[in-house]
Amino acid sequence: MIQTKNNLKPQDVVILLKIIALGDKSWFHHTIAKELGISQSEVSQSLNRSKYAGLIDGERKKVNKLAFTEFLLHGVSYVFPQQPGAMVRGIATAHSAAPLNKIIVATEKYVWPYAKGSDRGQAVEPLYSSVVEATKKDTELYELLTLVDAIRVGKIREKELAKKELEKRILDA
């Protein structure tokens, strides 16, 4: 029998990135839930999965930055792969958004589908459906998620630049 209750889900990455984006600010399950548009019970279950995977400490408060960075750099593109889709209106992501859009000039644009978005590009499904709304209020989380998307959908150059920037932002924080 295959056990699946402890397998990571995409929202686990989003929640851990949100904790990192908060830095030294104190947080509670209900505040994370509200800011991300995820139920409080799902946040709790997510933190349990992350604890099981060794990505957060036993108290479920402090991200194991080394392990989480290792997972993002080498595993996220295999566990949560994404292929760019049809041209849609949305919010820029991957190399089309900050911080990589300051370094990379590309003809193709990637966006999270969003009817009120101001960009047009190939659709990239966000890690979790509430990400677009959540990132409107949190620039740090937005940039972390766009870097993760660059690893998920980018070519070699984009992936390498995103990996270096993620390492710097997570491990040096």
Rank of each mutant, 00 (worst) to 15 (best):
M1A: 14
I2Y: 07
N7F: 11
L16F: 09
L22D: 13
G23S: 14
D24L: 10
H30T: 10
T31Q: 05
I32Q: 03
L36W: 12
Q40N: 01
S41L: 14
S41C: 01
E42W: 05
V43G: 07
V43H: 07
S44H: 07
S46Q: 03
L47A: 02
N48M: 10
R49P: 07
S50Q: 07
D57F: 04
G58N: 15
E59D: 15
K61Q: 10
K61R: 08
K61L: 04
K62N: 09
K65A: 09
K65Q: 12
L66P: 00
F68E: 15
T69K: 02
E70H: 05
E70A: 12
H74T: 14
H74S: 14
S77W: 05
V79W: 08
V79P: 00
F80E: 01
F80A: 08
P81F: 03
P81I: 01
Q83S: 15
G85D: 10
A86D: 10
T93N: 06
A94C: 09
H95I: 05
H95G: 08
A98N: 15
N101W: 07
K102C: 06
K102S: 13
V105S: 10
V105K: 07
V105A: 06
A106H: 14
A106N: 15
T107W: 13
T107D: 15
K109C: 06
P113S: 03
Y114L: 07
R120V: 15
E125G: 00
E125F: 03
P126S: 05
L127S: 02
L127F: 03
L127G: 01
S130K: 07
V131D: 12
V131G: 00
E133N: 14
K136W: 05
K137G: 00
T139W: 13
L141H: 10
Y142F: 14
E143D: 11
L144W: 02
T146S: 15
L147N: 08
V148W: 01
A150P: 08
K155S: 10
R157C: 03
K159H: 06
A162N: 11
K164C: 08
L166C: 08
E167R: 11
E167A: 13
D172W: 02
D172S: 09
